[in-house]
């Protein structure tokens, strides 16, 4: 017997036998674990275990659903809060004049004739506020709580002492900047009400007419009012909280 002769075929055959056996073993195990081949007792136990599991899972689903709902509600609350905060922000921006505004309103144009004092402008602005204006600007200067309206006298020739009033040049200034003619006052609000407020008999228009000033009123459907050029900054303001008084 040639030993090398029979080693190789036998090894090959054993290799294939191993493959076949393990495949068959796997297949048979799978087949034996088939539900149809199980004992009734084990099947009952399995059903019980599975139904227990199912009950637990159903409870878990309920619990998770509740959690989800509460989470959704809390996010909705957050959304509402954010919305109200952003609305407040918008309002504050409008009031403080940090954003451009647009809407319907009235423009009042003053040409350079007659004598217009800054007090006339103040009166017009006051009257407009009274008539329900919501935002006012003079020559692209937004009027806020910090706006100043004033005037400067300016002498062109330093050496000649001014004698008459005509020798002075008077400028109306707003926020310390010279106001150029024509002065345009823009007011946002109900244009009819604004116009009526200005043209009341014995009102501001009649007053101005006495000094030969005839402002031009114009109702406009679309008006834009610019934002403040330099919004004010606060360093010394702190919110006041009342001290707790001792009883």
């Amino acid at each position: 017997m040639n030993k090398a002769h029979w080693h190789i075929p036998i090894t090959i055959v054993f290799l294939f036998l191993g493959i076949l056996l393990s495949l068959q073993f796997q297949a048979q195990t799978r087949f034996a674990s088939d539900l149809a081949l199980q004992k009734t007792e084990t099947l009952i136990a399995m059903v019980r275990g599975l139904s227990d599991k199912r009950q637990k899972l159903a409870l878990e689903i309920l619990d998770l659903g509740n959690q989800l709902r509460s989470q959704m509600e809390s996010t909705q609350d957050e959304k509402k809060l954010l919305e109200s905060i952003s609305q407040q922000m918008e309002k504050l921006n409008i009031v403080n004049g940090t954003t451009d505004l647009k809407g319907s309103g009235l423009t009042i144009t003053l040409e350079e004739y007659g004598t217009v004092f800054y007090t006339d402008l103040l009166k017009i602005v006051n009257e407009l506020w009274n008539a329900g204006a919501e935002a006012i600007a003079i020559n692209e200067h937004r009027i806020t709580s910090h706006t100043t309206l004033s005037y400067t006298e300016y002498n062109f020739d330093e050496e000649v002492q001014p004698f008459f009033e005509e020798d002075y040049m008077m400028f109306i200034t707003m926020n310390h900047e010279k106001l150029d003619y024509p002065i345009t006052i823009k007011a946002l609000g109900d244009s009819n009400n604004l116009e009526k407020g200005l043209t009341l008999p014995g009102g501001i228009m009649d007053d101005l007419a006495l000094s030969n000033v005839y402002p031009e009123l114009e109702k406009k459907k679309k008006l834009t009012i610019p934002a403040l050029h330099s919004p004010s900054t606060y360093f010394f303001l702190n919110e006041y909280t009342p001290e707790k008084s001792n009883p």
Binding site: H7, I10, T11, I12, V13, F14, L15, F16, L17, G18, I19, L20, L21, S22, L23, Q24, Q26, A27, Q28, R30, F31, D34
Partner: peptide
């Protein structure tokens, strides 16, 4: 041959191919 048998069993267990239950009898 024993090594061959072990190697074959290992190869057969790593194969993911699953024999359909109908052919179990013939196998």
């Amino acid at each position: 041959p024993v090594l061959g048998l072990i190697l074959g069993a290992y190869l057969g267990s790593t194969v993911t191919f699953q024999l359909p239950a109908i052919y179990l009898k013939y196998m």
